[in-house]
Design a protein around this nucleic acid. Sequence first.
DNA 1: AGAAAATCTAAACATTTGTTATCGTTTCAA
DNA 2: TTGAAACGATAACAAATGTTTAGATTTTCT
Lengths: 189, 189
Amino acid sequence: MEQIRQIMKQMISISGDELNEFLNQTITKTFKREETLSRPNSIPNEIYFINKGLIRTLITDNEGSEHTIHFALENQFIADYSNFIQKQPSLYTLKTVEETQVIVLPRSAIEWGYENLTDGQKMGRLIAEFYFIYQDDRIKNTYVRTPKQRYDNITDVFPNIHNRVPQHMIASYLGITAVHLSRLKKLQF
Amino acid sequence: MEQIRQIMKQMISISGDELNEFLNQTITKTFKREETLSRPNSIPNEIYFINKGLIRTLITDNEGSEHTIHFALENQFIADYSNFIQKQPSLYTLKTVEETQVIVLPRSAIEWGYENLTDGQKMGRLIAEFYFIYQDDRIKNTYVRTPKQRYDNITDVFPNIHNRVPQHMIASYLGITAVHLSRLKKLQF
DNA sequence: AGAAAATCTAAACATTTGTTATCGTTTCAA
DNA sequence: TTGAAACGATAACAAATGTTTAGATTTTCT
């Protein structure tokens, strides 16, 4: 539990007692490679904190093909946050890429935190702001950068990703086909 | 000021006194058509609430061409929120499309709200969550919908946009050229 | 260790999207 | 009010990206 304590302490002022009471409402789980944490058509009621491993968010379109929408690494929170907030059925699948250990934060713990932690609402604001900034950056890049440029800079956001994720998932994240990415890699610029 | 009062009351519990004290720190401004509210390379220190009118966010790429990233309508908050949060120089331009009246919320008022409004942090969380959900939806659509499908559904997010904004700006928002959008419109599906 | 599956590259061809130029219409500003 | 600029459609051609198939290599699972 040391990692999440440190991350939370970096975000807000929180006492050891508050941290304990909050983390007592969570459980730690381990998933094997390619296991599913969350499926479409169910309402997401959990947020995950990754102790170790790598999780991928994907969406399946009407033709049945999968699109990787996001990667989540160690020391990050991950969820179908939109549908968690809206209490609506998810369209996303959350799946491990490699063996992954997570801390499961159930909705009850999150809501308890908002009400009872001194800086609970602030922590919620900071997490939402963090992901807003990430998404804004991402959207901006689709307008002003080519797929090749986005590929060349992907390790800024996902360090070491090339050694942990097959290339076709990166292509999917970039919004292009695996074949096309393979072609782009040959280009000098 | 009636609109922003109503919107804020819908989001959080806030007394009339709190509202008055908060709104006393704001000013109302009117901009003509195609006027600039915020420019690149300066740190954004204001959030705007639109009483009437329409604002467009755009980014200029290295080749000098403009990309419309967002439209903001009546009763919405708008800013270069990422760089407002990060206190970093903006890459965006905020420009009115038509004559627009806004309430200007300076950074000082926002920070005062976080500290002094009973539900200040919660309001910040809800706004960040709202825009997170909007962006998530947008990113999702780029993966699973064609430009034509996104065009056909744009009024879900921006009602009446076709009567207020020239088509080439919509094309830009969709990430395609104006010529291509004109072509797509002829297609049945 | 060995068989099956996954991965990456490559080439040929198809489709989508961008670019440039033109034209008629509408909108805007002096 | 009028001339200039902006706008939207269209066509021809160019560039980017997708699709299918194949083959060689690596990884995974038993």
